[in-house]
Design a protein around this nucleic acid. Sequence first.
DNA 1: TATTGTTATACTCTATAACTATA
DNA 2: TATAGTTATAGAGTATAACAATA
Lengths: 147, 147
Amino acid sequence: MDIEKELPMALRAAYLSLHRNSDACFTEFDVTADQFVLMCALQDEKALTQRELAVRITSDPSTVRAMLVLLEDRGLVRRQPHPTDSRAKTVALTATGKRRLKKLIKVGQPIRDCMFGVLSQAESKKLVSLLGKVADSLKDYPSPTAS
Amino acid sequence: MDIEKELPMALRAAYLSLHRNSDACFTEFDVTADQFVLMCALQDEKALTQRELAVRITSDPSTVRAMLVLLEDRGLVRRQPHPTDSRAKTVALTATGKRRLKKLIKVGQPIRDCMFGVLSQAESKKLVSLLGKVADSLKDYPSPTAS
DNA sequence: TATTGTTATACTCTATAACTATA
DNA sequence: TATAGTTATAGAGTATAACAATA
């Protein structure tokens, strides 16, 4: 098979198996894999604006808002007025959100163990590095609308 | 940062940048990136049943059906009774579908060029191999409902 | 009995465009 | 003028469960 087709398909297969297994694993905690990623971003950086959050999880402001509304309904995140910019809102995990996130990290561990189980330390690092190169290469790819 | 968190996030970032750039690139041809993957599967294997197709693109029978209905509406695929198993249907690209797919492969080429531009031949092969390992490791991961 | 596909249903992510309020 | 966020809207993928027809 052509490597040109193989790499995109391999990327897709690997990502989807991670994503779907995570989704299935998180279902009973009423959180999706994408919502988990968003919550992880909030764990790292204490309080982000919605705009910053969109950049962080490589998504769209309106998509982020839709996700935040769902998480807010479940009491996992809180949005508050920004201290200096009154247009903006800061987003942070609630106490419940922090507890939930810890739980999710724990129950998702076997999945990550499974992935790392087939890779050596060196291979893991190599894989992260190569994936980073690929993602970077496409980061500023000209969109058709920009022409 | 922890490699345990880094690999899943790197995988996500790389896949999403590929997927979204592809989607944007295919928009004017009225086909999504996921539909493109499905059409590619039909190019390789002449005629598949819906079930086989679901396995091939690692998706769900009902998801596949929803996608096929959309592609059928656009005149890109055709479903016909299976010659020997009258429960099943075979799915194949129409002539229009084949032409459209060729076009999509062509217009998507710059994206793949962009990815491969930052990788050596050896790195590309290594990446495909490592991604394959990861996907395989999760292929038969026990779902929570199976317990 | 098991399997193929359909149907109904519901949820989530995605994205665009028009809008407001503020910087 | 530019930016942060909202709203309305539409489309697409996802998955479960119940079902009919067939193997």
